[in-house]
Amino acid sequence: MTGLRRRALLLAPPLLALPVIARAQAAWPDRPVRWINPGPAGGAGDVLSRLVGDRLSARLGQPVVIDNRPGAGTNIGMTAVAHSAPDGYTVGLASIASNAANKWLYANMPFDAEKDFAAIGMIALVPNIVVIPPSIPPRSLTEFIAWAKGLGRPLNFGSVGIGSSQHLAAAQFGLITGIEIIHAPYNQAGQMNTDLIEARLDVLFQSISAVASMAQAGRMRPIAVSGPDRVPAFPDLPTMREQGVDVTTTGWFGLATPAGVPEPILAKLDETLTASLEEPALRQRIITGGSIPTIMRRAAFARFMAEQTETMGAIIRATGARTN
């Protein structure tokens, strides 16, 4: 066998495989897609995952199965995404924690947020609402600050994890007001809300979708919105900035895949997510839950996450927030 023929035969398998790969990409998805939510069940990320996952399923013609993997400030779930096969059958819920803040909070990150994921698109901005137990006297943020300063002890607050928008908003609040505030991270939003209602916690900077019904029922008292603008779910509730405390940290969620997913699949995910978020019924359900549906395509979302990483770095350095 001549050297030329031998080289031709060695090249044949990958060349023959190209049509097979192309057909597989064109057929995607031909089985269920796993959507990893790295936050707790019942939290804002879980709610959005189920709402949007349902619409993706309808459009893709395959089940989108929600897999909650909370812990380590979203690092457990997003590590699972980063280490999954880059075939389009695993997606993950990117957030202000996993894809912006954690880089600055953890000494040994299990993934590189800029290199190990491919951006698909934004889903929603998620302003937080400041809520306190109904059993304590304050009726406004100003009254709460005065009450806290007279306590003679630090404030206790909870969040869904280190690096979450809830954690960073509270850390900013403590820095600006000079109030000592102690963080208790939770894996279950339900238990955190119960602890606030029963006054084991003094305050939450909680996602609106997770507490709207309880706040509206009087089980917890809303005193401010932690974000730049008022929100449709509580139109009469002033922002923290309006009440003299310039905290505007806002959570956000988007969709990402492991790096290396083929371009045709990334494009189809982008198109499908965008089309889903354009549906009036889905947009209204997201708004009713307290979030703001936000369409941002792949390239714009990647730029946004890079900008948020730098912004969160500055906030974390200023507040001294860190992992334990």
Score class of each variant (00 low, 15 high):
Ala146Gln: 15
Gly61Trp: 12
Thr272Arg: 05
Phe157Tyr: 15
Pro138Ala: 14
Ala171His: 07
Ile316Asn: 03
Ala212Phe: 04
Gly73Cys: 08
Ala97Met: 02
Ala267Ile: 08
Ala267Thr: 12
Ala26Met: 05
Ile96Leu: 15
Arg219Ser: 06
Ala80Ile: 08
Ala24Gly: 11
Ile123Val: 15
Arg7Pro: 00
Ala275Phe: 07
Glu263His: 11
Gly71Val: 11
Val64Gly: 02
Gln308Thr: 04
Ala118Trp: 02
Asn37Ser: 11
Ser165Glu: 11
Asn99Gly: 00
Glu271Pro: 00
Ala12His: 01
Ala275Arg: 15
Ala72Met: 13
Asn75Met: 14
Ala44His: 11
Ser159Glu: 08
Glu279Leu: 12
Pro133Tyr: 12
Glu263Val: 13
Trp147His: 15
Ala189Gly: 13
Arg221Gly: 03
Pro40Gln: 08
Ala80Glu: 15
Thr311His: 14
Trp35Phe: 15
Ala212Pro: 02
Asn68Gly: 04
Leu273Glu: 00
Ala318Lys: 12
Ala184Asp: 07
Arg59Ile: 06
Gly43Asp: 05
Ile316Cys: 05
Arg221Tyr: 05
Glu242Val: 04
Ala58Leu: 14
Pro222Phe: 05
Leu196Phe: 04
Pro235Arg: 09
Pro154His: 14
Ile96Phe: 11
Leu56Met: 14
Ala148Phe: 12
Thr2Asp: 14
Pro19Asn: 07
Val131Lys: 03
Pro235Val: 10
Leu155Asn: 10
Glu114Asp: 15
Asp30Glu: 13
Leu18Ala: 12
Ala314Thr: 13
Val211Tyr: 01
Leu60Phe: 15
Met214Cys: 00
Thr249Ser: 08
Ile96Gln: 03
Gly39Ile: 01
Val225Asn: 02
Arg200Ala: 05
Pro13Met: 04
Arg23Pro: 00
Thr248His: 09
Leu10Ala: 08
Ala171Gln: 14
Ala27Lys: 10
Phe111Asp: 01
Pro63Phe: 13
Met296Glu: 09
Gly158Ser: 11
Leu60His: 10
Ile123Asn: 00
Arg34Asn: 03
Glu279Tyr: 05
Ser226Val: 04
Ala224Glu: 00
Gly92Ala: 04
Asn37Trp: 03
Gly43Met: 05
Gly158Leu: 10
Thr249Gly: 05
Ser57Phe: 11
Pro238Trp: 02
Asp67Glu: 15
Arg34Met: 06
Val126Asn: 03
Tyr89Pro: 04
Gln191Met: 09
Gln172Asp: 13
Val52Gly: 00
Leu237Glu: 08
Gly152Tyr: 15
Ile295Cys: 00
Gly77Tyr: 02
Pro138Asn: 12
Leu277His: 00
Ile176Asn: 11
Leu277Trp: 00
Gly244Phe: 07
Thr288Cys: 03
Thr239Val: 06
Val65Leu: 15
Thr323Ala: 10
Asp202Ser: 05
Tyr186Asp: 02
Leu93Gly: 01
Ala321Trp: 02
Val203Ser: 01
Tyr89Glu: 05
Tyr106Glu: 07
Arg139Tyr: 10
Pro232Val: 03
Val160Ala: 12
Ala27Gly: 08
Pro154Phe: 14
Gly92Leu: 02
Ser159Pro: 07
Gly3Thr: 10
Gln25Cys: 08
Ser226Cys: 15
Pro63Asp: 13
Glu271Gln: 14
Arg298Val: 02
Asn99Asp: 11
Ser159Asp: 13
Gly289Pro: 02
Leu4Gly: 01
Pro293Arg: 01
Lys115Gly: 05
Ala148Asn: 12
Leu237Ile: 10
Ala302Gln: 12
Gly178Trp: 14
Gly244Thr: 08
Gly190Phe: 14
Thr311Gly: 03
Gly150Ile: 09
Ile129Cys: 06
Ile36Val: 13
Ala302Tyr: 01
